[in-house]
């Protein structure tokens, strides 16, 4: 951020989570949420924005992520150091409970934060890569709606290489 903008008063947005908790964030953080950036660019952003799909617990994490990324990118450090720093931060940031990870992924999709969406999807993919089908069903809370006959038929007719 340049010094001239620092002198002027920073624009602040209030984000309200699903459970009614209000978070105060600076513009540099808010614009990382693509949904909000669109509002700002379209001049439709009111200082108070309700986010109906995100709980306070998840929104706090999302804001922490965006804050760190905003600070690192504007910190004036060289690109390679910033890259390294973000990598370490991202790795630690992904070290959370699986359910939180799923919620972060869903929130990143809803708030349209591309880098966080990519990061959570990559992490989830590497988590389920070696798991059994039963473990994955449990993790994503989905039920097997194939009947035994259906599953057998589909598996037989559309077999793939790399079994």
């Amino acid at each position: 951020m340049s010094s001239s903008t620092e002198l002027t008063e920073k624009k602040v947005f209030l984000l309200k989570s699903l459970d009614g908790v209000i978070f105060e964030v600076e513009e540099s953080v808010a614009v990382q949420l693509e949904v909000i950036r669109e509002l700002i660019e379209g001049d439709c952003a009111r200082p108070f924005i309700s986010l109906y799909n995100v709980t306070s617990e998840i929104l706090a994490l999302v804001i922490e992520y965006c804050k760190h990324h905003a600070e690192t990118c504007s910190g004036g450090t060289s690109a390679t150091i910033a890259d390294e720093d973000l990598k370490t931060f991202d790795n630690e940031f992904m070290n959370v409970d699986e359910n939180i990870l799923l919620e972060l992924c869903s929130a990143a999709d809803y708030l349209d934060i591309k880098s966080l969406f990519e990061l959570t999807c990559r992490t989830l993919a590497s988590l389920i890569k070696d798991r059994t089908i039963i473990e994955v069903r449990k993790m994503f809370n989905v039920e097997n709606d194939f009947s035994v006959v259906e599953e057998k038929a589909v598996r037989k007719e559309f077999a793939w290489a790399f079994k």
Partner: peptide
């Protein structure tokens, strides 16, 4: 998006999670 990142070996197994 998650499934597209899986190696084919995993994808061929996990596509049967549900319909």
């Amino acid at each position: 998006k998650i499934l597209v990142l899986l190696p084919l070996e995993s994808l061929q197994k996990l596509r049967f999670v549900c319909k």
